[in-house]
Amino acid sequence: MGPSEEHTRPDGIDDLTVEALGNISEALEAVEIARGHLYAFHRLSGTADFTLGRGVQQLREAGHGDLADRFERELVGRNVLDGRWTFQIVEEYDDGYYALFKSLEASARDELVGGRRHLYEAELKEARRTHGRPGHEAEPGDD
Rank of each mutant, 00 (worst) to 15 (best):
M1P: 09
G2V: 03
P3D: 10
E5V: 03
E5P: 01
T8I: 08
D11W: 07
G12E: 02
T17K: 05
A20C: 09
L21S: 06
G22K: 05
N23F: 04
N23E: 10
I24W: 06
A27C: 12
E29R: 14
A30N: 14
A30F: 08
E32A: 15
H37A: 14
Y39S: 10
Y39T: 11
A40I: 02
F41C: 13
L44W: 04
S45K: 06
A48K: 08
D49N: 12
F50P: 00
T51Q: 11
L52A: 15
L52E: 02
V56N: 12
Q57A: 15
Q57P: 01
R60I: 01
A62F: 08
A62D: 14
H64L: 11
G65P: 03
G65D: 05
G65A: 11
D66V: 09
D66K: 11
A68Y: 09
A68C: 07
A68I: 04
A68R: 10
D69P: 00
R70A: 14
F71H: 04
E72S: 09
E74I: 05
G77F: 05
R78G: 05
R78F: 05
N79M: 08
L81Y: 10
D82Y: 11
R84K: 15
F87S: 10
I89Q: 06
V90L: 15
Y93N: 10
Y93V: 12
D94C: 11
D95T: 13
D95A: 15
Y97H: 12
Y97P: 04
Y98P: 01
Y98K: 14
S103R: 08
S103L: 03
A108V: 06
R109N: 08
E111T: 08
V113I: 10
G115N: 01
G115D: 01
R116K: 14
R117P: 00
H118W: 06
H118I: 01
L119K: 04
L119Y: 04
A122E: 01
A122F: 01
E123M: 13
E123R: 08
L124S: 06
L124G: 06
L124E: 07
R128S: 12
R129C: 05
R129G: 07
T130I: 15
G132M: 07
R133D: 05
R133V: 08
P134F: 12
P134A: 15
G135P: 08
H136K: 07
E137K: 13
A138T: 02
